[in-house]
Amino acid sequence: MKRILAAVDLTSTAHLIIRHAVELARSMGGRVRLLHSVVIAPQVPPPGVFVPLTSFRAHELADAARTAMESLEESIPRELRDGVVVEIGHAADCVCEAARAYDADVVVIGAHDYGLISRALGTTAARIVNRMDRPVFVVRPMPTSHVVEPEPVSAKAG
């Protein structure tokens, strides 16, 4: 069985990434594991302002993300699901580490929107592609005029 790791960022791109991951799982005979990383943004608080420990907030964010991810996972046909993982840390590091830990056969990630200005690969996506020691499937959201909507995955979910 092939292992497809889909790194999603809980934006609208997540659905597109999952669709492609599901298609890969179908065509390769595998399952899809969803990964989301919670980033802790380093911030210097103003003098006199109390800021809770970032680790506390990160875990709260991770819990919320896990709930959202489990909801996303429901759009994957049951027989193709292989769990949800939420990691705390920088996205590129988390994705590369998770891919190795899962021994993924393919990692699916999203790039920036396709447009005249934003055709460049995002920094995180570029780091992942450059560092990953296994195949990376880069999904790129297309403008509406270029998109042929596939059958919604949720309609096939078991």
Binding site: V129, N130, P135, V138, R140
Partner: peptide
């Protein structure tokens, strides 16, 4: 990445699967 692959990954309007 190899310079060709890098440019294709960055600029392609279609999904790209890279493999080392």
């Amino acid at each position: 990445l190899g310079s060709v692959a890098e440019k294709i990954v960055r600029l392609s309007p279609c999904p790209v699967l890279t493999v080392r």
